[in-house]
């Protein structure tokens, strides 16, 4: 790692001020950023650790019945807290990385990084979550803007993520066996006004909504309906050692059908 100064703000305002000054970067749980820094692929003068800000840790439910998760909340906490009220989300959080990664990794860090193979972006997009920052609220459809790219401005901090709870939902993940990230994973969420289907791992543009499936499932909520759809096009799908574009496209369909079948 290149050396840096580690700053430990206690409040969001302090953190924002630190991030506004010079070459600084925010550190969430560090489960992606620290390995990146170890490989010397990231360099900064000052690293602002968000782990000391109590205000962005923890979970609650708002007046609209949405579940609100502080940006600094660990995957382990989400997995534990929502096993009953939003089991699909809890199940997703409980399968990210491994237990040690889940102790440190945070929802805010995962969403801000928007790795094309991360789990949380699929949940946020399919649930039509609102990403709350220290300056504004951003809808999930506007938040994700392609691989490793989001609507966040320099220095903007995710303080909370608000998830409407669907009637039914499930997350089906087919893992890339080495990294354990999704090779393809699909989050399906059925709301009263329609179905949303978000796919991660597959596209070189990052998480995306599979609109054909959403349309079909909104009309007829059944796994068989998915079987009747053509798989999304293989162009634009990631092709690597672990699977080519055609395979990933095929898996999108398989995982979507399984998610519908398993939705609770």
């Amino acid at each position: 790692m290149y050396d840096f100064e580690l700053l430990k703000p206690a409040t969001i305002d302090e953190a924002a001020a630190m991030l506004a000054e010079g070459d600084a970067q925010a550190l969430g749980g560090g489960q992606t950023l620290i390995p990146t820094m170890k490989a010397r692929l990231a360099q900064m003068d000052r690293l602002v650790a968000l782990s000391g800000i109590d205000a962005i840790r923890g979970v609650c439910t708002d007046d609209d019945g949405r579940i609100c998760i502080g940006g600094g909340t660990s995957h382990a906490t989400v997995a534990r807290e929502y096993a009953k009220s939003y089991p699909a989300l809890a199940s997703l959080a409980g399968r990210i990385g491994d237990p040690a990664v889940r102790s440190r990794g945070t929802i805010g860090g995962s969403l801000a990084n928007n790795d094309p193979s991360a789990c949380y972006p699929a949940a946020a997009l399919a649930s039509n979550a609102t990403i709350v920052t220290n300056t504004r609220d951003i809808g999930a459809d506007d938040f994700f803007q392609g691989m490793f790219t989001t609507a966040l401005e320099e220095g903007e901090i995710i303080t909370e993520v608000r998830f409407p709870v669907p009637e039914k939902a499930a997350y089906e993940k087919f893992i890339q066996p080495a990294s354990r990230f999704p090779l393809v994973a699909v989050f399906v969420a059925k709301f009263a006004d329609g179905v949303r289907v978000a796919v991660t791992g597959a596209s070189s543009d990052g998480v995306f909504r599979w609109s054909e499936a959403e349309q079909a499932l909104s009309d007829d909520w059944s796994a068989d309906v998915v079987a009747g759809l053509a798989a999304p096009g293989a162009e634009g799908m990631i092709s690597d050692l672990h699977g080519d574009g055609a395979y990933r496209a095929h898996l999108v369909k398989v995982m979507t059908a399984r998610a519908v079948k398993g939705a609770v």
Partner: peptide, 11 residues
């Protein structure tokens, strides 16, 4: 080398 770490070499 495409499988240059445990991210791509499946242990």
């Amino acid at each position: 080398l495409l499988s240059a770490s445990y991210m791509d070499y499946t242990m």
